[in-house]
């Protein structure tokens, strides 16, 4: 049996918001260590890897591994009904047909209970080995979201170029070009505002702007985002959770 209680429903709301536009159906795999999701978008260009660790829950128990096949659009309709500050409890039997979603208001004696029908989902699982990356950038997630939104207005592609001194985000479209250059710096008072660039080898990669626009929907999960890049390889974009992470793996574009 699964019984997981969050101190606030806001974390699950943000997680669903962050992934629902990339994948529609996915299995939530529940183990004694927490909840994991691995799902690929329909075009197989973007992969989501989520870990909500046991410590993200106020109370958590999962005696046996349980798979919850969830339609995220339906789940989102229910999860939106709770207030962000409500306790959120997920309950499922060992071989469940549905999952119970319970919101409890902390001040009033109000308990809202919903049941979501589960689906039997076949899903491809991609084996991602630990990769060596040539460059790692950690920056404020809101800044990365703004750069993505701004440059996406010019072109379908977004180029990320990393040199020893800086990282350049660049787009080249029909009516014009744009780029944003960031240098590494340390903000002692607000560490999350810092920009860290670690580079072993220079990088020049091009990505589909619409996929990066989907990735930045994870912005509300974390103050900072870490971008890991390797030549001619998928990039990793990571938002850390209090215990766990939301990672996006994005295949690059290559010149013919």
């Amino acid at each position: 049996m699964l019984e997981g209680k969050f101190e606030e429903s806001s974390l699950m709301k943000k997680v669903v918001d962050a992934i629902k536009d990339s994948v529609k159906l996915c299995n939530f795999n529940c183990t004694e260590h927490g909840v994991t999701v691995q799902a690929v978008d329909d075009s197989r260009v973007l992969l989501i890897s989520l870990l909500i660790g046991e410590a993200s829950f106020e109370e958590y128990r999962c005696d046996r591994n349980i798979t919850l096949g969830i339609d995220l659009e339906s789940f989102n309709k229910i999860i939106k009904n709770g207030n962000s500050s409500d306790f959120l409890t997920l309950i499922a039997e060992d071989s469940p047909d549905n999952v119970l979603i319970i919101f409890e208001d902390k001040k009033k004696d109000r308990v809202s209970e919903y049941s979501l029908k589960l689906m039997d989902l076949d899903s491809d699982f991609l084996q991602i080995d630990d990769m060596e990356f040539d460059a790692t950038i950690t920056m404020p997630s809101s800044e990365f979201a703004k750069i993505t939104r701004d440059l996406k207005t010019l072109s379908e592609s977004l180029q990320i170029i990393v040199t020893k001194e800086n990282v350049k985000f660049s787009s080249d479209g029909d009516f014009g070009t744009g780029n944003v250059v960031l240098k590494g710096f340390v903000d002692m008072d607000k560490p999350d505002e810092s920009i860290k660039i670690d580079m072993a080898r220079p990088i020049n990669l091009t990505f589909g702007a619409k996929y990066i626009a989907d990735i930045v929907k994870g912005t509300s999960l974390s103050e900072s985002v870490t971008i890991k890049l390797a030549d001619k390889s998928p990039a990793l974009f990571e938002y850390k959770l209090p215990s766990g992470f939301l990672r996006f793996y994005l295949a690059p574009k290559f010149d013919e």
């Binding site: 690929v40 075009s43 197989r44 260009v45 973007l46 992969l47 491809d124 699982f125 991609l126 084996q127 991602i128 592609s157 091009t206 589909g208 390889s233 998928p234 793996y249 295949a251 690059p252 574009k253 290559f254 010149d255 013919e256």
Partner: peptide, 14 residues
């Protein structure tokens, strides 16, 4: 125009 790659070109499906 650059061509979009598929993740399965990099990772194995299991």
């Amino acid at each position: 125009t650059p061509i979009q790659n598929d993740l399965t070109e990099f990772y194995n499906i299991i």
